[in-house]
Design a protein around this nucleic acid. Structure first.
Lengths: 233, 233
DNA sequence: ACAATAAGTAACCGTATAGTTAAACCACCC
DNA sequence: GGGTGGTTTAACTATACGGTTACTTATTGT
């Protein structure tokens, strides 16, 4: 039930407001579509990562982006579409970083170790990635399903690990019956689980899982786990 | 600012409402504190698991529990306190089930395999546990921190796995330098990650991770991973 | 038998939420 | 130098939210 005419609103400031009290001072550029859009995306990433899709507030994203809320709807259409954009960017970022590792230029064993190390470091330095993925899985991946670009990048990623595995088998250093998908999942799992559950984990195991030595110990343990799994006895 | 006197409300039905249209018919017992409370707890578990703490709605929990919303506040005090009760119960449940495995009565290797198998099966059959833990970690474990009972159960759990490890080392079948905490985390990780990320994972790897054969393959892979990690070469 | 108490209800409150509206602003082209 | 069209704004809407109030009804101890 739309009740009141909209004209009424603009009647109010008959006398102009005394003085535009002071400009927010931050955000030097005016009228820059590109940077506004990317400020929104960055703020949204932070908020969605911290509170999840359901917990994040559009108003707060707008405020942190130093943009008007209307801009979010202008550039992205809806809260969910914004979430999808954030998620897509997060996936493209990690997959791109993986491609830059130049694993083809390394011995199979060294390449594998490097991948385990990279995965761990990436999760550690980009904790938003983990939280975003968790949130997306809570929603049964309905946003990722729509993303064609993520599928393209994923394919390249799986191929990359398969190639290492093949080279290792050919060189006689890796076992022949390792499934690349299972290996990929395991490499991610042993880092991801530790970090995403670092809060409950620290309570259950009565130790600070984020202490420097604890993190080092975990990385070494993970490398050991993967190599024992893959290397020929 | 509480404005209106509450009397006004009861004035309204001067003529009694024609007929109490019909009782909801479900919920046979009247005035049973215990079952009402547990219905609320069960409904809350489902809702929190499906939507997370932020996404779950108190009204909906009340409705699904066939209870009045006021009862939730009567028995639990607040939405967060309700969440804490749900979480506590979930942890006590899994830790209790683990204690019933009678791992002390098995050979070390068999005990370890049984634990990996149990962990996997438990996650598979109780997917709410995973989602609740994820939600709690999004909130930096602020609810679990307050739970003394969970700490007691956790200690017993770690001790149980340490005992297996010790027996295995004494029997000469396990490597001596395995950290029980790292092992615990890894056993959980390789199952947990696969299942919590089954939606995004099915897209990234372009395969149905929840297909029967896929699940079997994963369990076998996980047992293999743990045994290769722990067994003496 | 009955008062005290525990269990239960529906209507309500103040606030916050995602999303919308009409208008103003500004850079650029002609 | 005035239109044109993308960019930005504050004010607004309908609804949903967690939590509370005033009040009713069943159960229980004496």
């Amino acid at each position: 039930m739309r009740a009141l005419p909209y004209e009424r609103r603009r009647e109010l400031p008959l006398t102009k407001p005394p003085v535009p009290p002071e400009k927010p001072a931050t955000r030097p550029q005016v009228r820059d579509a590109r940077t506004t859009k990317s400020r929104i995306l960055a703020a949204a990433k932070k908020e969605f990562a911290k509170k999840g899709l359901g917990g994040a507030r559009v108003d707060e994203i707008a405020e942190k982006a130093q943009a008007n809320k209307r801009m979010i709807y202008h550039y992205f259409g809806s809260k969910e579409a914004l979430f999808q954009a954030v998620l897509e960017e997060a996936y493209v970022d990690i997959r791109s970083a993986e491609q830059k590792l130049d694993l083809d230029g390394l011995e199979p064993k060294a390449a594998l170790e490097r991948l385990v190390r990279f995965t761990w470091d990436y999760y550690l330095k980009n904790p938003e990635f983990i939280t975003l993925v968790n949130s997306e899985n809570l929603h049964r991946a309905k946003h990722l399903k729509k993303s064609e670009i993520v599928k393209v990048y994923s394919r390249r990623f799986v191929a990359m690990v398969s190639a290492i595995l093949d080279r290792g088998v050919a060189a006689g250093v890796f076992r022949a019956d390792i499934d690349p998908v299972q290996l990929n999942i395991t490499i991610a799992a042993i880092g991801y689980y530790y970090l995403t559950n670092r809060f409950t984990g620290s309570i259950v195991f009565e130790t600070d899982l984020m202490a420097k030595e604890a993190l080092e110990q975990r990385l070494n343990f993970n490398i050991d786990t993967v190599l024992r799994l893959v290397l020929r006895p």
